[in-house]
Each structure stands twice: as C-alpha cells, then as structure tokens.
C-alpha cells in the first residue's frame, strides 16, 4: 500500500492503495467515480477511457503510480452539468442503447475533437475504432461526433 495524491476532475484526491492498482479500480472502488466502466481489463474495448493530460487513455491498464502529477479527467468531470458539446450531441442523436460503453465513447470523442476540431469521416472512424459498442450504435456515434464538431 502507498499513498497517492491524484488530480481528478480539478480536485486533489488522496488514496491509499497498492501501486499496481489500475486507475480504473481506484476511480470505481475507492473514489466512487463509477462512470468509467470495466469492460475487458486488457485495453481492448475502450469502456474505461479517461483523459490523462487531455489525451484519451485506457484506465484499466494504467497503474495508479503512473498518474500522480497528471491531470485526470473522467466522464463525471468532462463538464459541470453534463452539457459538454459531445454530451449534448449524444443526447441530440439519442445514441445510447444499453449505455454501458458510452462514457468511454464520449471521452474518446472529446479528446479527438480537442486535438482535431474538424475530423473527416475517416479520422473519426480511426479515432473511435478502439471503443467497442456491443449494441452497434456506431453510426449514431459518428453522427454525434460530427454534430459536436460543429458546435465546438
């Protein structure tokens, strides 16, 4: 066990966990930030996507020890009131079916648009390819990313 000071959604949070603990489980079990989801545990599905210094990363493969000093943003901190343009676009296109993967999809999309405000269809497909949606809402995801791009 070791103590870590983490900067999550603009706040400093202290946790006492094993250094190898993936950030995913620190968020979910220790800090009650359960919007970030467990899907595969091997960085293959994207359900656990968060932002580390603005870049989309898979938190299931990210040891907590590697995150000290970094700016961590989770779905809960993407916007104050759940009204980030990407979240609004997701609502406008009524994207979710089961909804389980969508936080990860939104975090990947928000990071993409941060780096590339006007992505082409191909760039959207490439950026979103690491996030599995078992319900198959891919077309609405792509449409929502485009709508969000126009608003940002």
């Amino acid at each position: 066990m070791a103590q870590f000071n983490l900067n999550i959604n603009g706040k400093t949070q202290q946790v006492d966990v094993d250094p190898s603990t993936p950030l995913l489980w620190v968020l979910r079990d220790h800090l009650d930030l359960v919007g970030t989801k467990f899907g595969c545990g091997i960085a293959q599905c994207g359900a656990c996507t968060i932002h580390l210094n603005g870049t989309a990363v898979r938190s299931c493969q990210l040891p907590v020890s590697a995150t000290e000093g970094a700016q961590i943003t989770t779905i809960e901190g993407l916007s104050e009131n759940g009204d980030h343009p990407v979240q609004q676009a997701w609502m406008e296109h009524d994207v979710p079916q089961c909804g389980y993967c969508q936080a990860g999809q939104i975090m990947t999309a928000a990071a993409l648009l941060q780096q590339n405000p006007n992505p082409s269809d191909e760039e959207i497909e490439n950026a979103m390819n690491g996030n599995i949606c078992r319900c198959g809402t891919y077309l609405r995801i792509k449409a929502a990313v485009k709508t969000a791009a126009q608003k940002l």
Partner: peptide
C-alpha cells in the same frame, strides 16, 4: 428521447456494477 439519456452521457451510476 431515452429517459436515461442524460444520466448515461454524464456517467451516473445506473448499472448493478456501479452499486455500492
């Protein structure tokens, strides 16, 4: 629109796996 849409896109606890 999905009555849970806002909760889903903002990461609110909705699933059993989120329960504590």
């Amino acid at each position: 629109r999905n009555v849970d849409g806002q909760k889903i896109v903002s990461g609110k606890p909705l699933f059993a796996i989120d329960h504590k």
